[in-house]
Nucleic acid binder design. Sequence first.
DNA 1: GGAAAGATTGAACAGTGGTTCACTTCTTGG
DNA 2: CCAAGAAGTGAACCACTGTTCAATCTTTCC
Lengths: 191, 191
Amino acid sequence: MKARLSAARERILDAALEIMAEHGYAGCSIAAVAHRAGLATGSVYSHFPAKARLFTEVFRVACQREVDAVSRAAAREASAGARIAAVIETFAGRALQSPRLAYALLAEPVDAGVDAERLRFRRAYAELIAGYVAAGVAGGELPPQDPDLSATALVGALGEAMVGPLAAGVAGPGTIPGLTAFAHRALGVST
Amino acid sequence: MKARLSAARERILDAALEIMAEHGYAGCSIAAVAHRAGLATGSVYSHFPAKARLFTEVFRVACQREVDAVSRAAAREASAGARIAAVIETFAGRALQSPRLAYALLAEPVDAGVDAERLRFRRAYAELIAGYVAAGVAGGELPPQDPDLSATALVGALGEAMVGPLAAGVAGPGTIPGLTAFAHRALGVST
DNA sequence: GGAAAGATTGAACAGTGGTTCACTTCTTGG
DNA sequence: CCAAGAAGTGAACCACTGTTCAATCTTTCC
């Protein structure tokens, strides 16, 4: 019984994420989510008290997955420059692979409560990158700078460079090297 | 009579912009705009066919004003480095002076039709900056790069660095020099 | 096997806010 | 001074969705 309950809960989360990846947050009415999860509309409310709560959880899971992937890729590298390159390749590669989801996570209009979760997402990215930058500065690989500001700006740069093309449907494969070069210059990675 | 008509239209646009600067797009119900313009709710529809149309125009005017201010400031400078610094100072200075408006123009959730205008706004900024970058590259002041990509990334960096603080209410005066340094490094302005 | 506990259903409800429209008020031209 | 017509009014309308809830079905356990 308990298993059945939590299984339904899981199915709802999965369904919501799938719809978001296909049709964005705009397509995520409670009715649509319930239908895809194989439940009635009202049943969603046995598992989540409100739509905003459901989607903060969806965002949390999806964002964590992204940050983890980027973090894992960067951890394989040793120098700050290589780590930043890994961050960009992973971030951009994943975004280009699931453009609709990336747009939803990064920029699509959502409920205010959910938007707060998105801010945390960007903050998490920024903190991850700030750590690499701080280490690079401490180790002399990077020139002195405010690691948090650099990281925040870099997150914005990545997001903008992705969302623009995503909205326009223009997926640029040549964008990733260009962005990496931009980021390396911006952080002062010695060539 | 014609004058009266266009005067009312103007009053509506002004009212909408004022409310947006005070309470953001969220506070811009048709009723609120009409009230501030000294009209009845329905009268708005003698001048604009729909809310989205009204606000695409509000956005167009407001964005143009921003881009013009930045463009004018940059035009006073000769080198690419000085121009970029002027762009950042003007952009950030104005954003910090009207934080609510800046947030609305840059990031607040809005109708889909209005969002398209916002994209044009960001694009206009990017094109402006891309021009300066291209000139800098052509003149040998900046290293070879894709001016459009660099400009897009820079717009994202500026936006993110502004919106974060705007949302958190943290207006950082030390942010502007830091951002300028970031941008100069990113574009390869020789120090 | 049966009854209590609880999950599920889906149609009805409610709040919001853009939009409409029958009516009033005002300007204009003869 | 008076139609004619345009502009203005604001309450009613409607569409859209998140949310609720009484009825129904499932599971569990004595």
